[in-house]
Design a protein around this nucleic acid. Structure first.
Lengths: 235, 235
DNA sequence: TTCATAGTTCGATGTTAATCGAAGCATTGA
DNA sequence: TCAATGCTTCGATTAACATCGAACTATGAA
């Protein structure tokens, strides 16, 4: 009847609470089974199955069969992007569901949110970057300052490569645990990646927990305090 | 009940066909009255009023009273962004509603889509940029090539300023008229802006029509053909 | 004041779709 | 072959909400 791509169909798929819960769970980046998603959404397996069929038909999630399980993942970077932006809008508008966050202390401390660092350490990192004026919060969103660009170069991140990507460099992503933000976007992902490369941290297998080594955590705090950690220098 | 910002509420607001039509209409960047939006959405004024009340409560649109009219605009850049991404997903998935586009030949030819060029000329520009390899379409989205960066500099666009913006540089935006794309994002907006500055085109008052001058259209085609137009060189 | 236009509120109606119990496949392991 | 587990299909119920007619308020014009 009207013109243009049918936004409503896609948005309606994201607009159901049960489905939205499933998608939020998938933001962890892990592949989850139908049963796990049913659990996350708080509905019975039958209901979940119906929702997943719709999400699959709408190409929001992609199923992968393995044994007698079906694992689902978000079906593309644009889906991640739309979820991130929606989270931003929802938090701006004040639609936050209260919850203290996951119970597991390791998850609370440091975990992966799709491909960047979340949890207490993620929030601390975001705050530190802002405090050191490496990023700035503009009314449109988050931007990398000149000082931030210098820092990135010194820390071994190839900014030019990141900029040659359609993905926004910096984005605020609201943390489960609190009303505080951590850093998403290409730069956020690059930072976490660099932590892995430097051996500061590693991702626990089959979990969203990011486990920092003793030395890694020390270096991380040095970084937040504003002193360039020695290990961060480019080789 | 569950964690995190309530994506579902926001998404549900965008997920109704009537509301989605209104929001798509507002993507033109103009402020529209309640009656105009009712017309766009194809519903009666009462129904539109109810929808607008919801959109306003959800801070998706912002009303502005003027005389006995109420003008509505999208309430922030993040709203524009989410709509753009949703359009992209919808078109990827193939949820396009067939329609030949607006009847008005001027609108078909060149119009504003929020802040960038749409219509036949917008589609032609996108195709030309791709043909000249100034932009490249990667599976994640659209990126500016090195040659594209050189071109931008030569055309008088300050890329660094654009990159210091949270907004993605290039984004594909599906055109009403066809299954073809035009260029959105900060670079798309900057191009149109430059067209204005160079006197190639101007926006018709109270309309989304972009009217090119005779000389401007000639220069535009020269640009698409791959020869740098003289007027484009930086002064 | 009187009329016209823009927009809203209210109430009734109809449709859509989320939900779950029960039963059905399909895959794995014994 | 049988049982167990993971997931889906079917059908019935229920709740939410989009829609519009009718009546109401507010602003502006004659």
């Amino acid at each position: 009847m009207k013109e243009g791509p049918d936004i409503a169909r896609v948005a309606a798929l994201l607009g159901d609470p049960a489905r939205a819960n499933m998608l939020t769970a998938l933001m962890s980046g892990r592949a989850l089974t139908a049963a796990e998603l049913a659990q996350e959404a708080g509905v019975t397996p039958q209901t979940a199955s119906s929702h997943l069929a719709k999400l699959e038909a709408g190409q929001i999630v992609t199923p992968r069969k393995q044994g007698r399980h079906r694992y689902f993942t978000l079906s593309g970077p644009d889906i991640v992007e739309v979820l991130e932006v929606l989270m931003g809008i929802a938090s701006r508008v004040g639609h936050n569901r209260v919850r203290t966050g996951p119970k597991d202390p390791e998850l609370r401390k440091a975990r992966v949110c799709y491909d960047h660092l979340a949890g207490e350490m993620g929030v601390a990192l975001f705050a530190a970057l802002e405090e050191r004026e490496l990023i700035a919060i503009d009314h449109n969103g988050v931007i990398l300052t000149d000082a931030g660009a210098d820092f990135a170069a010194g820390f071994g991140i190839d900014l030019m490569a990141l900029r040659n990507t359609p993905r926004p460099l910096c984005r605020e992503c609201l943390d489960w645990s609190a009303r505080q933000s951590h850093l998403a976007g290409a730069f956020g992902a690059a930072l976490l990646n660099r932590f892995y490369e430097l051996g500061w941290a590693q991702r626990r297998r089959d979990s969203r927990v990011v486990r920092f080594s003793l030395e890694g955590e020390k270096q991380f705090h040095t970084l937040c305090d504003g002193r360039e950690p020695a290990a961060g220098r480019i080789s």
